[in-house]
């Protein structure tokens, strides 16, 4: 067994942010193991993504270009990956901890009888094993987990690793001849509804979140305004989602999304342990709350005690001027 493989995700022929992060993490692992880094690229019209992967420093690209693979469906893609792994025996397989990466790696683990560790925030190499650090038990503890034998399947948390940088390197991808029949894939796509604008929470560098303290659906306007001026995404606590003020895909926390932005601004959020579970790994945390004893101030790096309806507009105006927006 030898070689580090990364699974590439893409949309509209552009590589996904998570895959740039996966390449940088995988590069380190490959260097430490002294093994080559190979990217796996499945889709339709993805030659540009292959070029981008070489530019980001992978040593080889194995591609499959087929209309049946245009939109990721695990039943279409995974059997091909299983065959490839059996044939070429990589040592490590890395993917994003995304809907795609999670489905694919769980399938691979089951079919290849391999160990799988999800949601890594740090990787180290010890001998031929990768040691994965990841939050466990609602983010209250860290696991330092390793797969004891055979293939090592690992998924990576979004934004936990830096994105790979351009190297100027070029290369020639190996395109597999696949003959897929749409009739063999059980999942038939009927419809797709894209998110109503805004940034994907998991990929967002900056998140401004509102909680019960915003008081109602219209209370999210100043939260959104600050997010907009900062080019960030809007998040919410479960209390705000359960009240019906914002849709579920904004929820941050144990039963929502796990996020790792550079900056997380919590407005009118008390900071319950279940909320913390979803945002604790943010680099800089700001809390705005009128209650100086709110638990969020124990986690925050910067705190403002006061009324969010006064502070948020002032902050939005300040950034508007400084950022020239």
């Amino acid at each position: 067994m030898s070689g580090v493989w990364v699974w590439l995700e893409h949309q509209d022929s552009l590589m996904a942010a998570i895959s740039k992060e996966t390449i940088s993490a995988a590069r380190q692992v490959a260097n430490n193991l002294g093994q080559p880094l190979t990217a796996l690229l499945f889709g339709q019209d993805v030659a540009g993504v292959a070029a981008a992967a070489f530019d980001l420093g992978v040593d080889a690209v194995i591609g499959a270009d087929d209309p049946v693979l245009a939109t990721f469906r695990v039943s279409a893609a995974a059997p091909l990956v299983v065959d490839l792994i059996k044939e070429r025996q990589p040592a490590v397989f890395l993917a994003g901890h995304t809907s795609t990466g999670r489905d694919l790696t769980a399938w691979l683990a089951a079919d290849l009888d391999a160990g799988l560790v999800s949601d890594a925030i740090q990787l180290a190499v010890d001998g031929d094993r990768v040691v994965v650090t990841r939050p466990v038990y609602a983010g209250k503890l860290l696991g330092n987990i390793r797969i004891t034998e055979g293939l090592q399947l690992i998924t990576l948390r979004s934004r936990a690793f830096p994105a790979a940088e351009a190297t100027g390197q070029t290369g020639t991808a190996e395109w597999l001849t696949v003959s897929l029949d749409e009739a063999d894939v059980p999942e038939k796509l009927i419809a797709f509804a894209g998110r109503d604008g805004g940034v994907n929470l998991s990929d967002a560098k900056i998140i401004v979140s509102g909680g019960r303290g915003v008081g109602g659906p219209e209370g999210f306007a100043p939260v959104q305004a600050l997010a907009d001026v900062l080019g960030g995404a809007m998040g919410a606590s479960r209390a705000a989602v359960d009240a019906g003020w914002v849709p579920y895909d904004h929820q941050v926390g144990q039963t929502g999304k796990t996020v790792s932005p550079d900056l997380y601004i919590a407005c009118g959020i008390s900071g319950a342990i279940q909320h913390q579970a979803g945002m604790r790994t943010a680099k800089t945390i700001v809390a705005i709350n009128k209650d100086a004893d709110a638990p969020i101030f124990k986690l925050a790096h910067y705190g403002v005690v006061g009324d969010l309806f006064k502070i948020l507009p002032a902050l939005t105006e300040e950034f508007r001027q400084r950022l020239g927006k």
């Binding site: 391999a114 860290l142 696991g143």
Partner: peptide, 21 residues
């Protein structure tokens, strides 16, 4: 089991307190 979970640690202690603005 192929996954070794036997090395769990506590979170690193957070440096410094919240800076109040």
């Amino acid at each position: 089991s192929k996954v070794d979970w036997s090395n769990i640690s506590t979170l690193p202690v957070r440096e410094g307190n919240v800076f109040m603005i």
